[in-house]
Design a binder for these strands. Structure first.
Lengths: 153, 153
DNA sequence: TATTGTTATACTCTATAACTATA
DNA sequence: TATAGTTATAGAGTATAACAATA
């Protein structure tokens, strides 16, 4: 029945020529692989990214973390709560209304572990391409992102 | 506080060098733009893709549609139900256990409208790059996808 | 008046397990 | 025994609106 394109060749699918669709599918594959790699240490993708940003920016507020990650203030609450409950992140009053977030010693160890896992995960995919191709990707993707870099409105 | 990379320059963020992260953020931006464009005709991204595959493959089953789109059998049920409830898709018994799906006349009109919207959406992003760059993207993304093209297992 | 954190809620997409009826 | 459709349920991420405390 008119097998085209890349997908095994079951049904016709003109979606494959769409950048947005290909981006979505490719991203889903990498996310699934990352989730699997991080599942061992019971961290979800959104939690690791938050943890890493906090590790790199001791004293930042959770609203700031959300702005960098494109996660809304309201959605940061359960993420930070869980990181604190697990003893990976600590916070102290900074401002009366804001908190200064910091990674604990246990948190730093988890970050190191997570980073190693992320490197492995990344390598599985980036090793498929030559450096010129990777350069194109790293030039292009931020441009797409900047078309409407979503933070909090 | 160590502003780096692309994101406005708030906090340090080593995530930006990760292919998977950039892919995820870029995809989210395009998905949000698509959802906005399709919101006018009350179609969600998952529904449009299903509708388009059915339009291109008259007589296919919903399991087949799911396989092409990487959507599990169980998750196809509400998608197809909604398309049928809206009179965009019709089905007849094919096999006793499977149905042959077809786009109705009303469905075909909606597909045409949706395709025009998708073209507009795509153009907003693909116009940012030259054709050599787009060629790289269209070569690379299916390779990433094929690393574990998820259908139903 | 604007901002930080918070609660509550809803929506979209995805995942699993189990059932039915057919083949 | 395997397949197509279905049901029920859970999880992850995201979106909005509203509120309290603070600046």
């Amino acid at each position: 029945m008119l097998p085209t394109s890349s997908s095994a060749g079951l049904l016709a699918n003109s979606l494959d020529r769409l950048l947005g669709y290909q981006l979505r599918r490719a991203s889903a594959v990498m996310m699934a692989d990352l989730a699997r790699e991080l599942g061992d240490i019971d961290l979800r993708p959104a939690e690791v990214t938050a943890l890493m940003v906090i590790a790199e920016n001791a004293g930042c507020s959770q609203t700031e973390v959300g702005q960098v990650l494109g996660i809304k203030r309201a959605n940061m609450v359960p993420i930070v709560s869980r990181l604190m409950d697990r003893g990976l992140v600590d916070r102290e009053r900074a401002d009366g209304r804001s908190h200064a977030l910091r990674v604990t010693q246990a948190g730093a160890a988890v970050v190191a572990d997570a980073q190693a896992r992320i490197e492995r995960h990344e390598a599985r995919f980036s090793s498929l391409f030559d450096s010129a191709t990777l350069d194109v990707l790293h030039a292009v993707l931020p441009v797409i992102r900047s078309q409407r870099d979503e933070a909090e409105g």
